[in-house]
Nucleic acid binder design. Structure first.
Length: 496
RNA sequence: GGGGCGUUAGCUCAGUCGGUAGAGCAGUUGGCUUUUAACCAAUUGGUCGUGCGUUCAAGUCGCACACGCCCCA
C-alpha cells in the first residue's frame, strides 16, 4: 500500500481533522511541558500506601506519556519507564475541556498534572487536575490485546512494535544491559575501549566478502570492515596491552536467522595471554552475564537449558568429528585423501582441490556444529583456515585457536595471535594465492600489518564474540532480526 | 539455490463444494462515569499482495512475480 493510499484511510483522515482543529486554536505541537515524574517511580514510591494514606498525603505528580488504553474515565498512559492509570472524568471539566477529552485517541501523547489516589479496586491512579495534549497521533495503533504480530511489520516498523509489544521492548533493554555489562567487565580488567576504522583500504581480519564503497575526493576504493582485528593488534604493537572494541562489522553475505549484513562484534586483545586464558575469561564472562541478566547461571534457549556455572566442554576439531560422526578409525585424519574419503562417506559437499584442513572444517560445519548443544570450546583448528593464528608448537598443522559453540551456533572465536612477521607474510601469500584461484573470501596481503609485526608484537591472545548471537542466547530469541532494532529487509514492492 | 507455508478492514483473524465479503478489537454517535480485555445500544469501514489465465461467475482453481516465515543445501 502506498503512503497516499494510507493517507486516504478514514481513521487517519478523522485524526487529521482533529489536528487541523487544534492548529486553528493553539500551538499544535507544544514543547514546553515539564514532566516531573515517571510512572515507575510513582509506583515504587506510592504503591504500598493505603487508599486512606494517599488521600491524606495529597501527593501531586506530573507525568507525560502515550495513551494506550481508554476505559471510560480511565486512561492508561505509557511512558519510558512503564504505565500509569489516569482518571479523567469529562463531567468534572468545562464543556470545552470535556470536548478535548472526548477527542483523545489511542496513541496520543498527553501531559497530566494531578493527585495520586487509589481506586475502589486498589489501583494506584493519577487524578488529572490539568491535562494537555502534547502530540497528536495520526495513525491508529495495532490491536490492543494482540499487539502487532506480523513479523514483517514488526521489523519494518519497529517503532510500532516497540509501542505495543512489551516483550520486544524488553529484548532491547536486555541488549543494552548486556552491552553495558560487557564494557564494565572489560574495564574492570584494565582493558581500554578503542575505535578503529570501519572504512578500510585493505579489508582484513576475517575470511569474508566485504562491501565496497568509494571515496570521491581521494578517488579511492574503500571497504567496510569485515573485522577490526588487524587494527587492534597494531594497537598492541603500539603498547596498548589490553584493548577491546564493541562495534559493527559488515559482511557481504546472505541473510538468515543468524546473519545480518551488519552485525555487532566484541573483539579484545590481551598481551602476555594465551588462548587458554581467553577460554577461561569467556566462561567467566558468560556466567556473569547470565547472572546479571537473569539472576541465575542457568539460561534456557529454544528448548535447551544451559548452566553457565558448569565448566564448558573442550574438544578438538578432530575429536568432535570422531564423536558426532561416529568415526572409529583414527587413520582417516592422516592424509588429505583419507579426509576427502571421509567427507564423501558422510555426504559432505566440498571441492576436491581443497586442502585437508579445509575439508575437515567443511565436515565440521556441515555435520558437527549443529549437533553441539551444550557450551563447548572446539580447539585445534587447521592452519589453512586460521591465517592470523599462532601455529601450535607440537603439531604444525594446527593452530592455538578455539571457537565457542552453544546451541549449534558459533558464539566466539579466539586464538593465540601469530606475532611472527615472517610466518604472517607467508600466510598472507597463501591467502592471496587462494584469492587468485577464485576464493572471494580469502584475505588481502596487508604489508603495513606485517611491518607492524616487524616492530614486535608481544605474545598476545585475542578473541571475537558475536554480540547479536549472544543477545539471542540470553533473550531466547530464534532470529537475529529479533535482537536487531532495524534488521536489514528487502525493499517493499511499489504497487504502481 | 531447492522445497513448504503465508499475504482478506487500521490491527488480530474466519471465509465450506467457485455463486453479492464476515467476526472481535479500533473508529463514529449516544448512554454510563472508581473501570480492569470496562460495560450497554446503534453504526461506518474492503483494489481479498500484484499481474495474467480458466470459467457464465474467482478471496476460493491454474501460472508467473513480489514480500515474509520455516526447513534443506
Amino acid at each position: 500500500m502506498t503512503e497516499e493510499n494510507q493517507d486516504e484511510n478514514k481513521l487517519i483522515a478523522q485524526r487529521r481533522e482533529k489536528l487541523t482543529a487544534i492548529r486553528a486554536k493553539r500551538v499544535a505541537f507544544p514543547n514546553d511541558f515539564v514532566k516531573e515524574d515517571t510512572s515507575s517511580d510513582l509506583i515504587k514510591n506510592h504503591e504500598a500506601k493505603t487508599k486512606k494514606e494517599l488521600d491524606e498525603l495529597a501527593v501531586t505528580a506530573v507525568i507525560a506519556g502515550r495513551i494506550i488504553r481508554m476505559r471510560g474515565p480511565f486512561v492508561v498512559l505509557q511512558d519510558g519507564s512503564g504505565q500509569m492509570q489516569i482518571y479523567i472524568n469529562n463531567k468534572s471539566y468545562s464543556d470545552e475541556q470535556a470536548e478535548e477529552i472526548k477527542s483523545f485517541d489511542l496513541g496520543d501523547i498527553i501531559g497530566v498534572h494531578g493527585e495520586m489516589f487509589k481506586t475502589g479496586k486498589g489501583e494506584l491512579t493519577l487524578r488529572a487536575a490539568t491535562f494537555e495534549l502534547l502530540t497528536k497521533s495520526l495513525r491508529p495503533l495495532p490491536d490492543k490485546h494482540k499487539g502487532l504480530t506480523d513479523t514483517e511489520m514488526r521489523y519494518r516498523q519497529r517503532y510500532v512494535d516497540l509501542i505495543v509489544n512489551e516483550e520486544s521492548r524488553k529484548i532491547f533493554q536486555t541488549r543494552s544491559r548486556i552491552m553495558r555489562f560487557i564494557r564494565q567487565y572489560f574495564e574492570s580488567l584494565d582493558f581500554m575501549e578503542v575505535e578503529t576504522p570501519m572504512m578500510q583500504v585493505i579489508p582484513g581480519g576475517a575470511t569474508a566478502r566485504p562491501f565496497i564503497t568509494h571515496h570521491n575526493a581521494l578517488d579511492q576504493e574503500m571497504y567496510l570492515r569485515v573485522a577490526p582485528e588487524l587494527f587492534l593488534k597494531r594497537l598492541v604493537v603500539g603498547g596498548f596491552e589490553r584493548v577491546f572494541e564493541l562495534n559493527r562489522n559488515f559482511r557481504n553475505e546472505g541473510l538468515s536467522t543468524r546473519h545480518n549484513p551488519e552485525f555487532t562484534m566484541l573483539e579484545f586483545y590481551q598481551a602476555y595471554a594465551r588462548y587458554q586464558d581467553l577460554m577461561d575469561l569467556t566462561e567467566n564472562l558468560f556466567r556473569k552475564i547470565a547472572i546479571d541478566i537473569g539472576g541465575s547461571s542457568k539460561v534456557s534457549f529454544q528448548g535447551s537449558e544451559y548452566d553457565f556455572a558448569e565448566p564448558f566442554a573442550r574438544l578438538s576439531v578432530t575429536d568432535s568429528i570422531r564423536k558426532y560422526c561416529s568415526v572409529a578409525d583414527d587413520t582417516v585424519f592422516a592424509s588429505a585423501e583419507s579426509v576427502a574419503a571421509l567427507a564423501n562417506s558422510l555426504e559432505v559437499n566440498f571441492d576436491e582441490n581443497w586442502s585437508k584442513g579445509k575439508i575437515l572444517m567443511e565436515i565440521f560445519d556441515q555435520k558437527v556444529e549443529a549437533q553441539i548443544d551444550q557450551p563447548t570450546f572446539i580447539t585445534e583448528y587447521p592452519i589453512e583456515v586460521s591465517p592470523l593464528a599462532r601455529r601450535n608448537e607440537e603439531n604444525p598443522e594446527i593452530t592455538d585457536r578455539f571457537e565457542l559453540i552453544i546451541g549449534g551456533r558459533e558464539l566466539a572465536n579466539g586464538f593465540s595471535e601469530l606475532n611472527d612477521p615472517e610466518d604472517q607474510a607467508e600466510r598472507f601469500k597463501e591467502q592471496v594465492a587462494q584469492k587468485d584461484s577464485g576464493d572471494s573470501e580469502a584475505m588481502h596481503f596487508d604489508q603495513d600489518y606485517v611491518t607492524a609485526l616487524e616492530y614486535g608484537m608481544p605474545p598476545t591472545a585475542g578473541e571475537g564474540i558475536g554480540i547479536d548471537r549472544l543477545v539471542m542466547l540470553f533473550t531466547d530469541s530464534a532470529s537475529i532480526k529479533d535482537v536487531l532494532l532495524f534488521p536489514h529487509m528487502r525493499p517493499q514492492q511499489d504497487p504502481t
